[in-house]
Simulated scan of single mutants.
Amino acid sequence: MLRNITITPVLNGFVAQVGCQQLAYTSVDKLVLDVGAYLRDPEATEKRILKEEGFNAKHTLGGAEAPAPYPQVNAATDCCAGEPQPTTATGVGAMLGGLARR
């Protein structure tokens, strides 16, 4: 099935959105080759790109084990004392609420 293609120029190349997938390209030649291949055979090109170049390719298509998740950050112990600490309330309501308590 041929999906909609949107190509957006960015600072160091292009972002091609094909359906709900986004691919980043730093080479216009590679972008043109992939778009041409996709227009000729969408299913085969999608499978190839997802398998070889997709962000989650090795995890969703039977490759290597998923990488370990990033460690959880504990602001109370992992941040330096001089760094600003995260707050639980954000937005205008929290700011106004903070002003009202002063």
Score class of each variant (00 low, 15 high):
Arg3Glu: 15
Arg3Tyr: 06
Ile5Leu: 14
Ile5His: 06
Ile7Pro: 00
Thr8Gln: 01
Leu11Asn: 15
Asn12Met: 13
Gly13Met: 06
Val15Gly: 00
Val15Pro: 03
Ala16Asn: 01
Ala16Ser: 06
Ala16Met: 14
Gly19His: 06
Gly19Lys: 08
Cys20His: 07
Cys20Pro: 08
Gln21Lys: 10
Gln21Arg: 10
Gln21Ser: 11
Gln22Leu: 05
Gln22Met: 10
Gln22Pro: 01
Leu23Trp: 03
Leu23Ser: 00
Ala24Tyr: 04
Ala24His: 05
Tyr25Gln: 02
Thr26Asn: 15
Thr26Met: 04
Val28Glu: 15
Val28Gly: 09
Lys30Asn: 10
Lys30Ser: 07
Leu31Ser: 02
Leu31His: 00
Val32Thr: 12
Leu33Gln: 05
Leu33Pro: 00
Val35Thr: 06
Val35Met: 03
Gly36Val: 04
Gly36Ala: 12
Ala37Arg: 01
Tyr38Met: 05
Tyr38Val: 04
Tyr38Thr: 03
Arg40Cys: 06
Arg40Gly: 06
Arg40Asp: 08
Asp41Pro: 00
Asp41Thr: 01
Pro42Leu: 04
Pro42Ser: 12
Glu43Met: 03
Ala44Tyr: 01
Thr45Trp: 00
Thr45Gly: 03
Glu46Phe: 02
Lys47Tyr: 00
Arg48Asp: 14
Arg48Ile: 06
Ile49Gly: 00
Lys51Ser: 12
Lys51Asn: 08
Glu52Asn: 04
Glu53Ser: 13
Glu53Lys: 14
Phe55Trp: 06
Asn56Phe: 13
Asn56Arg: 09
Asn56Thr: 11
Lys58Arg: 14
Lys58Ala: 13
Lys58Asn: 14
His59Ala: 15
His59Ser: 13
His59Asp: 12
Leu61Met: 12
Leu61Asn: 08
Leu61Val: 05
Gly62Pro: 08
Gly62Lys: 08
Gly62Arg: 10
Gly63Phe: 07
Gly63Gln: 09
Ala64Arg: 13
Ala64Met: 12
Ala64Ser: 15
Glu65Ala: 13
Glu65Gln: 14
Glu65Asp: 15
Glu65Gly: 14
Glu65Val: 11
Ala66Asp: 11
Pro67Tyr: 04
Pro67Thr: 09
Pro67Phe: 07
Ala68Phe: 06
Ala68Gln: 11
Tyr70Gly: 15
Tyr70Ser: 15
Pro71Trp: 03
Gln72Tyr: 10
Val73Ile: 15
Val73Leu: 15
Val73Cys: 14
Asn74Ile: 10
Ala75Ile: 02
Ala75Val: 05
Ala76Val: 13
Ala76Ser: 15
Thr77Phe: 01
Thr77Glu: 11
Thr77Ile: 06
Ala81Ile: 10
Gly82Ser: 11
Gly82Lys: 10
Gly82Ile: 08
Glu83Thr: 12
Pro84Trp: 01
Gln85Arg: 09
Gln85Asn: 02
Pro86Arg: 09
Pro86Trp: 07
Thr87Arg: 09
Thr87Val: 13
Thr87Pro: 01
Ala89Ile: 03
Thr90Val: 11
Gly91Phe: 03
Val92Glu: 14
Val92Gln: 12
Gly93Cys: 11
Gly93Met: 12
Ala94Lys: 02
Ala94Asn: 02
Ala94Met: 01
Met95Ile: 11
Met95Tyr: 12
Leu96Tyr: 08
Gly97Tyr: 08
Gly97Arg: 12
Gly98Trp: 10
Leu99Ile: 10
Leu99Phe: 11
Leu99His: 07
Leu99Thr: 05
Ala100Cys: 04
Arg101Thr: 14
